[in-house]
């Protein structure tokens, strides 16, 4: 069993041209994370994978994709899992810091902190945060990159189980490996590494032979998601002070005229009253 360099940010490499769809990764994931089995159904539409989608019980899923190429029906597999982004949306949106991007690579979730607002699910561009809809006090569930294994120097369960398509290791090494494959077999691969730039860079790189959109990959922005909300949020203290100071100044100005008039009237009243007193005397 290969050891992992735990110090650097580690990434997954998933070569879909080599995936045979055996779903060993799914079984290993279920076993390592002690996830219960799901009742499955046959459905039409996107793919014939089983179960239909990732969920609180299924952190990784091999999706089955049919497409047409040169008039012939072809098929391909696509492993869905948490992308472990470099600058993750879930980490930035969580109001209580329940998500942490670890230096080792995985994005982990600390369930003790979670208040259950589900903002991470809205924020995640890959829709990989799932909720325990079956529970009365539900928490978020997602692939944690087998953080407990990584810390012990072991590869994630799915990588260990995969016979053909997955590699795991430090970011630079894996990127070099992927680029080398693209260079070495230009006719076998599409010249793109999905996940390298998506959402500002992720911890899962995909190689395919077919356009990623056709395989069911979401088109995701190349900017890190937190960079969208931060410009607005960084204005918060300044806005607070500006509005506060502006309104205070405005109040002072608008009330000043009133105050001056009042003082004038009071003075007049005083004068009048003293005059009347003198008259009385």
């Amino acid at each position: 069993m290969s050891k992992v360099n735990i110090k650097k940010g580690n990434v997954f490499l998933i070569d879909l041209t080599k995936c045979t769809g055996c779903r060993g990764c799914m079984v290993a994931c279920k076993q390592w994370n002690q996830l219960q089995a799901e009742e499955t159904d046959f459905f039409s539409g996107e793919g014939y994978q089983n179960p239909r989608s990732t969920s609180e019980h299924t952190f990784t899923l091999i999706k089955f994709r049919e497409y047409e190429k040169n008039g012939k029906i072809e098929f391909s597999f696509y492993k869905e899992m948490c992308m472990h982004c470099d600058d993750p949306a879930c980490v930035s949106v969580c109001p209580v810091n329940a998500f942490v991007k670890t230096p080792e690579g995985p994005v982990i979730y600390e369930s003790d902190l979670c208040i259950g607002c589900r903002f991470c699910m809205i924020g995640c561009p890959f829709n990989m945060a799932k909720y325990e809809w079956s529970k009365k006090l539900p928490l978020v569930k997602k692939c944690d990159g087998c953080y407990s294994r990584i810390k012990e120097g072991l590869e994630p369960a799915c990588v260990t189980a995969c016979a053909t398509a997955m590699d795991y290791g430090p970011h630079d090494e894996i990127l070099k490996m992927a680029q080398q494959r693209l260079k070495q077999f230009p006719d076998r691969y599409l010249d793109k590494i999905y996940g390298k730039d998506e959402a500002g860079g992720t911890g899962v790189f995909y190689l395919t032979s077919e356009p990623f959109e056709e395989l069911g990959f979401d088109t995701v922005t190349k900017r890190a998601l937190p960079s969208y909300t931060w410009p607005a949020l960084s204005l918060v203290p300044a806005t607070f002070l500006t509005v506060g100071a502006g309104l205070s100044a405005l109040t002072w100005i608008t009330n000043r005229r009133e105050r001056i008039e009042k003082e004038k009237n009071e003075k007049l009243d005083k004068q009048n009253s003293t005059e009347s007193k003198e008259e009385q005397i």
Binding site: L113, I115, G116, L137, W230, L233
Partner: peptide, 19 residues
């Protein structure tokens, strides 16, 4: 989902979060 932990917002500050 975890209403009893709502007060966590008061102590675990995440300044990056709009929430």
């Amino acid at each position: 989902g975890q209403p009893h932990k709502g007060w966590h917002v008061l102590i675990h500050w995440n300044l990056q979060s709009p929430m």
